[in-house]
């Protein structure tokens, strides 16, 4: 029983050991302790999707999971997606379609988009809109993001 917890996890393919305050959430841990500042904090109550990242292959809200709960897990952040090449096609499509402006929602949006593409989602605009509807973007009209995700699906399946 302790207010700080020892954790061991893998982050972007690297083993990490740390002692963290019990109350520290995963996204703050990644940003503050590991300096992986690509994951953003937008609302801290699980609505905006800016902190969306991947835990054991599933997208999760980084603000609704404690670092302590990540013990033994495999975490992939936007930096990991980029460095490993997993998000290369989406990056290219987002660039071509101008599917980002300020870029603050982008890491979470990419993680959600990748979840959709990897799950075999169709190039169906309504389905894509529904899938990314947990990720708030104040700058674009969402349309370019939908276009970009469609592009990636169509390119990889033809």
């Amino acid at each position: 029983m302790s207010r700080s917890i020892d954790i061991k996890l893998r982050v972007n393919g690297e083993n990490v050991s740390a002692t963290v305050p019990a109350r520290l959430n995963l996204v703050d841990f990644l940003r503050e302790e590991l300096c992986l500042t690509g994951s953003h904090v937008g609302c801290e109550h699980g609505v905006c999707g800016a902190c969306t990242l991947t835990v054991d292959g599933d997208t999760v809200r980084g603000c609704l999971m404690l670092a302590a709960q990540a013990n033994g897990k495999e975490i992939t952040t936007i930096e990991g997606l980029a460095d490993s090449g997993q998000s290369t096609a989406l990056q290219a499509a987002f660039t071509k379609r101008n599917a980002l402006q300020c870029g603050f929602c982008t890491p979470g949006m990419l993680a959600s988009a990748l979840g959709y593409v990897n799950a075999g989602g169709a190039a169906d605009r309504d389905a894509i809109r529904q899938h990314i509807s947990g990720n708030y973007c104040r700058c674009t009209g969402y349309q370019s993001i939908v276009d970009a995700i469609c592009d990636v699906i169509e390119e990889t399946r033809t």
Partner: peptide, 14 residues
Amino acid sequence: AARLLQGRGRFVDD
């Protein structure tokens, strides 16, 4: 776009 898409933006809290 390249920076922002790879998590390499520099926002104040970063």
